[in-house]
Design a protein around this nucleic acid. Sequence first.
DNA 1: CTGTTGTATTCCTTGACGGGAATATAACCG
DNA 2: CGGTTATATTCCCGTCAAGGAATACAACAG
Lengths: 112, 112
Amino acid sequence: MSDALWAALADPHRRAIVALLLERPRSVGEIAQARGLSQPSASKHLKVLREAGLVRVRQDAQRRVHALDPAPMASLDAWLAPYRKLWNESLDALGRRLDERPDTTGTSAPKD
Amino acid sequence: MSDALWAALADPHRRAIVALLLERPRSVGEIAQARGLSQPSASKHLKVLREAGLVRVRQDAQRRVHALDPAPMASLDAWLAPYRKLWNESLDALGRRLDERPDTTGTSAPKD
DNA sequence: CTGTTGTATTCCTTGACGGGAATATAACCG
DNA sequence: CGGTTATATTCCCGTCAAGGAATACAACAG
């Protein structure tokens, strides 16, 4: 449950990279092109992901093939676990309430 | 999958607040004291959590009692789902995944 | 209305983060 | 060896978020 993990995933580009690597390992160049990033930018983001333990590198000639390491995700899942119970109850209750009363129960809608 | 949600949870103080609210709803002052935050700081963090939809507020006299709304956590869970498969399948298979591309490099020992 | 409590907001400063350009490093090929 | 490809790193800069102090605002008690 390191801060580094959260910080790494807080960036949309990095989440996109992680999603890319979910499909298959890719080189830095592939990632940069796929996400429309400059090469240095991709390299830097990958460094953050590496240091968060989310990604591992294998060297293939001049290429550096990055692969997802889903292990840290498990700690996210563990962190999420206590809340999971809650939202199951909440959604359940909400559904019931909505069935009974079609009313705006301030569920969310962050208006601004 | 709003960035606001990730940004809100990227901060350790805010994760701590969320954990506090998992136990029971609390007023701003209680939260500030429990986490050793100044009152303005607590108020600001709670605002971020509110705007991320993670917290809802009920007014009790002059107090503002904040309660956790676990619903947004569900989107985190959904985001996590594809990765959950990976680490559930078998962590042993990770090594195989990393060596997915057959090559002459016989060094399979994971570095880092 | 006046004072008091609880909370929100503003102002300011500081440090971290991300992007771009240029450059450095590494691995390969001839 | 020199040259080429792939990636990493550095430097600079604009932006943004967080913290502290002071203040504004809201709800209540009398």
